[in-house]
């Protein structure tokens, strides 16, 4: 499955882009959320998807991983049109929201193990325990495999979701604010893991509010506003002074709900989960 996916278009020299979206429109209920988004992510790129709350970032990535149906436009992932022919085992996804606590308890290990299932693989592969343990190790939770997820802190739960995406050793990672609520040491560890995986050829599309620890990795930034791409190119650099990393100011009462590009590298909106318009 892995090897087939890389070169479906034999005539082209380069493999098909990891993500190719053309003129994607998405309607949710009565609202027109995405209004003609074009996005290409080549193999090996690390693309940051930026934009204010409600600009449609999550909607876009959820469309890319086949959770939301586009009302118009085409999407192909790893060279295959969206659908069951996409090698989903090569795609890792970290959703934005920690799923609302389910009623039956589940351990971190069980949640991570569910990342090993994809496509037609409905049963855990041989040696799954070791792979789950390795993935938890990557996010620094090796000793919490047997703990109930509901008893982990918000940031730890977020790291479990990262491990769930990494456990299948994906070629393409789609991350929706993976480090929101994750402490600085764990963010550094996450960035180090990403650096290593990107060095091995991983492609990453990551929704962020600030580039943070991932800044050195990001090769390109795409900015959404009102469901349209308004910038596609060099990632914004922190411009000195009070915008520098480690010196973030939060202005809860700042007027205007829509940030523009100049504010992108500034501190995130107040980070407490729940204060943002989560999808």
């Amino acid at each position: 499955m892995t090897s087939v996916a890389t070169a479906p278009q034999a005539s082209t020299t380069a493999p098909a882009p990891a993500v190719e979206a053309r003129g994607v429109h998405v309607h949710l209920g009565a609202s027109h959320i995405l209004r003609g988004v074009d996005l290409t992510v080549a193999r090996g790129e690390v693309v940051a998807l930026l934009g204010a709350n409600g600009s449609g970032k999550s909607t876009l990535v959820r469309t890319l991983v086949n959770v939301l149906p586009p009302s118009a436009g085409t999407v192909s992932i790893l060279g295959r049109p969206l659908g069951s022919t996409v090698p989903w085992g090569d795609v890792g996804y970290v959703p934005q929201r920690v799923s609302a606590g389910t009623t039956v308890p589940s351990t971190a290990g069980e949640v991570v193990a569910s990342g090993l299932l994809h496509g037609r693989r409905l049963r855990l592969p041989r040696g799954w325990r070791a792979r789950v343990q390795d993935a938890l190790d990557l996010v620094g939770l090796a000793d919490r495999a047997g703990d109930a997820t509901s008893q982990l802190s918000g940031g730890q739960q977020q790291r479990v979701l990262i491990a769930r995406a990494l456990v299948r050793e994906p070629e393409l990672l789609v991350l929706d604010e993976p480090v929101a609520g994750v402490d600085r040491p764990s963010q550094e560890a996450f960035a180090a893991t990403m650096t290593r995986l990107v060095g091995d050829g991983l492609t990453v599309l990551v929704v962020l509010h600030e580039l943070g620890e991932l800044a050195p990795l990001v090769t390109r930034a795409v900015v959404l506003r009102h469901g349209r791409v308004v910038h596609d190119g060099a990632p914004p650099r922190p411009h000195g002074g009070h915008d520098a990393v480690g010196h973030e100011h939060v202005h809860p009462h700042e007027p205007g709900p829509l940030a523009d590009e100049h504010r992108l590298t500034r501190g995130p909106l107040p980070g407490a989960p729940g204060t943002e318009a989560r999808s």
Binding site: S84, P95, S99, T102, E110, S114, L117, G119, L124
Partner: peptide, 21 residues
């Protein structure tokens, strides 16, 4: 099918994004 049914029951969005039926 416990693992697959767990995945779907635990986080349907992730299961969908994994291409599970």
């Amino acid at each position: 099918l416990r693992a697959a049914l767990f995945s779907v029951s635990h986080d349907e969005e992730f299961a969908t994004a994994s291409g599970l039926p």
